[in-house]
């Protein structure tokens, strides 16, 4: 275990992600990379919405849905539980 992640993950500045546990690799877009980096810093989901809205030009409703969906994508990829 590595924090909230199921195994150790490394992410590059360009959004390239390596999952040490499975050997699988992923790409994240800019927004995904931002959230992922904050997750590594152990920012709680409740705080994430606030940070996204500070950083990006987006309304609350869309951002909330998208963050939920992104966590779901991470679960489906087996990166978090």
């Amino acid at each position: 275990m590595s924090g909230i992640f199921n195994s150790e993950v490394t992410i590059s500045d360009s959004g390239f992600l390596f999952d040490h546990g499975t050997g699988l690799t992923y790409s994240l877009n800019e927004t995904g990379q931002f959230i992922f980096t904050k997750m590594k810093e152990e920012v709680h989901a409740n705080k994430m919405l606030e940070l996204i809205m500070e950083e990006f030009d987006i309304n609350e409703e869309t951002a909330r849905k998208d963050i939920d969906d992104f966590y779901r994508q991470l679960k489906e990829a087996g990166l978090i539980d």
Partner: peptide
């Protein structure tokens, strides 16, 4: 100025 937003996404290679 805030950064341009796109829907956060992760894609497996």
């Amino acid at each position: 100025e805030k950064r341009i937003y796109t829907k956060p996404t992760i894609i497996r290679h």
